[in-house]
Design a protein around this nucleic acid. Structure first.
Lengths: 258, 258
DNA sequence: GAGTGGTCTAGACCACGCG
DNA sequence: GCGTGGTCTAGACCACTCA
């Protein structure tokens, strides 16, 4: 690993269109990522110090630093000066509900407290074609389907359907979905070792149908925000499909553009 | 500037709660930002090389590099290996329509081509109280109000109202709004020297009223995405309030969570 | 005081763009 | 071939945390 100038990423690809020059720190980054995927360090744990890693990879501290910098920027690692570098978690106070962009029109998330969860359904089913496609499964593969309502105070605000690959979420129960304190993704880490790393959302405006209207306690045909999310774990592997309906009479979806 | 270890940011603030330790590269970053705000380098132009800046600020190249890295990460500067570092623009092919998150359900932005713009209204008015508040103006200050419809192909898809501070957008005409090829924010840079740096959006689902329904050629009460945006220039100064209504029957608002 | 991440430097060399 | 940004190193010192 040491002193290999401009080594390319993979072997046996000499005829590729681009030489695929890969800087050392990118290779280090890839190695750290592999360890993360492999579960060598669990969520919340500290990874070895920069000096240790530099020694292990036969590389200078600065090179390891640059690799870790990028992983920290992607929210995979969390640096804490004086303490160490830690595997990021959905349990941290600072970034809890990182993926929940719905904010109360007045006040902030803190003043609102934790959402109440009511799990309406939690069962193992065969994946419908479209669900299978979005989760990169075969149609008919087992998935866990969950339907729940999240309420702020006493106001039901979010109606969500979740689909999770059955192979990774064996034994998920309605009790687990409802009882865990904190973000659902934190529970997934603790109970199933599945860490959600990023997600993509498609947002539309729709009219509530009869069932939805009743569950959210709004008039039939009320405009609702439809949020379709695919969440990915390491390696861009899709791990959750989520279809949410948000009431936006007291809340709004907040987004920042940079 | 050189060799000042741990100097604090401002003078005469010895009694502040925190010593406000500020790394050298942050101070350099602030200086570069000032030059950007002052217009020392115009959008699209190259800024001095890292070595030049290092000399000017009596600092090593690595320190300048770290300052520029952060500014590039914030999309204020654009690095191009072998060529230089440039003041970012809304005209670049890569990031055109950076702030427009509406995507066609099938295909991509490229296949869809440029949106057609129809300007319904463009006039100078006194700012209503709420508009003034969001633009940090006094109620009654002059603002330019624009109403327009954006169409993809022949389908009207976006109905937008814009409010711009009159002091910065003197002489903005409907012709300018309609005639410019490329993003509106690129036109603002060229014609008014105003560069939008970031924005915040609040998104809701609403039902089309009679006027909106006719302009977007949809049935009355059709659910639409309401997107309220405040766009900021340097220094977090609000420079535009925009209220958009998006049809989401053929398009969706796309967001990435990290 | 030992150990961690954070800053800063100086210098070498590499990849890229362009004349 | 030169100038640009990009990578990598080695070493010094600083700020923070905790025992």
């Amino acid at each position: 690993m040491a002193h290999l100038p401009s080594s390319s990423a993979g072997p046996g690809l000499a005829d590729a269109a681009t030489p695929a020059f890969s800087p050392l720190y990118q290779q280090i980054k890839a190695l750290i990522l592999e360890s993360l995927q492999a579960g060598e360090w669990k969520p919340g744990e500290a990874i070895p110090s920069e000096m240790d890693l530099a020694g292990r990879f036969r590389v200078s501290q600065g090179t390891v630093r640059k690799a870790i910098d990028e992983l920290a920027a992607e929210n995979l690692l969390l640096r804490r000066q004086g303490k160490g570098t830690f595997v990021a978690t959905h349990s941290e106070q600072q970034v809890r509900y990182r993926f929940l962009k719905l904010m109360p029109d007045a006040g902030d998330l803190a003043s609102e407290g934790q959402p109440q969860r009511e799990v309406l359904e939690c069962r193992r089913v065969r994946a419908p074609a479209e669900v299978a496609r979005m989760l990169a499964l075969r149609a008919g593969d087992a998935v866990v389907q969950v339907r729940r309502v999240l309420s702020f105070g006493t106001v039901p605000t979010i109606l969500e359907d979740l689909w999770l690959p059955g192979a990774f979420f064996k034994g998920l129960t309605a009790q687990q979905m409802a009882g865990y304190h904190g973000p659902t993704y934190a529970m997934f880490e603790v109970e199933f070792g599945v860490r959600m790393v990023r997600a993509e959302e498609k947002i539309r405006a729709v009219a509530a149908d009869a069932v939805q209207a009743e569950l959210l306690q709004v008039p039939h045909h009320t405009p609702l925000l439809s949020v379709e999310r695919v969440a990915y774990t390491y390696n861009d592997a899709p791990m959750e499909l989520r279809r949410g309906l948000y009431r936006t009479d007291t809340h709004h979806y907040r987004n920042e553009l940079n």
